[in-house]
């Protein structure tokens, strides 16, 4: 089983979007997938409940109170971390995960919070010793804006791996509402947006 933790202490940077899209990708690929929601708001868990019967299932797990277990034979476990994470909870979740995906929005407020979170992550031994990868993902990027250029620069400077930049699209809110992911859709538009995920999914698969 490969466990991916999606985390950033900065709220609103798209953790749930990324977590649910990743879950959808792995489920559609034929792998037994579970999505653990550690956030009291339960957004990820509710998405799994909305998932239509004819789509590849994603098993929803409630980890608000405690880090739990994944069902047997689970191949991919995605963990949606809460924004307001206590240090002990952060450590427990990091211990559980094989790698961390860290979404970042193109805004100055986000950069500072992300820097603080990255510093905190560095205090956790397996990350400090480079045993667990941290994948930075630029989220809701509108290309050719000044904010996007700044974020690009910032991400490079952080020293962690910038794995991909996800463009903004209405497809994300659409699919979220319907309990779907880009990977469940047909059509050119969805196929186009899915390309943004190639580098991140390959990065995750290489850790398996």
């Amino acid at each position: 089983m490969l466990a991916v933790l999606v985390a950033n202490t900065k709220g609103g940077c798209g953790k749930t979007t990324i977590a649910t899209q990743l879950a959808g990708a792995f489920a559609k690929a034929g792998l037994i997938t579970a999505l653990a929601d550690a956030d009291r708001q339960h957004s990820s868990l509710e998405w799994t409940a909305r998932r239509p019967k004819e789509t590849a299932p994603v098993h929803g797990l409630d980890w608000v109170r405690d880090v739990g277990k994944a069902p047997r034979h689970t191949a991919r476990l995605i963990i949606d971390a809460p924004a307001a994470m206590r240090p002990k909870q952060a450590e427990a979740l990091v211990k559980m995960a094989d790698m961390i995906v860290l979404p970042v929005l193109p805004s100055a407020f986000d950069e500072a919070a992300t820097a603080r979170f990255l510093d905190h992550l560095e205090t956790i031994k397996p990350i400090r010793k480079n045993k667990k990868a941290v994948a930075l993902v630029g989220n809701r990027m509108r290309t050719r804006t000044r904010a996007a250029a700044r974020l690009d620069q910032y991400l490079v400077v952080q020293g962690h791996q910038v794995v991909t930049r996800l463009r903004d699209s209405a497809l994300y809110s659409d699919t979220a509402a319907r309990g779907l992911s880009l990977f469940d859709l047909r059509g050119q538009r969805a196929e186009n947006m899915r390309e943004d995920w190639r580098a991140l999914l390959t990065f995750i698969e290489n850790a398996a």
Binding site: G30, L31, I32, H73, A75, R76, T202
Partner: peptide
Amino acid sequence: LDALPAPEPRHRVGLMF
């Protein structure tokens, strides 16, 4: 890939774009 029995050994191959 769909011809591979699931979960074993399908899981070992993982996700392919």
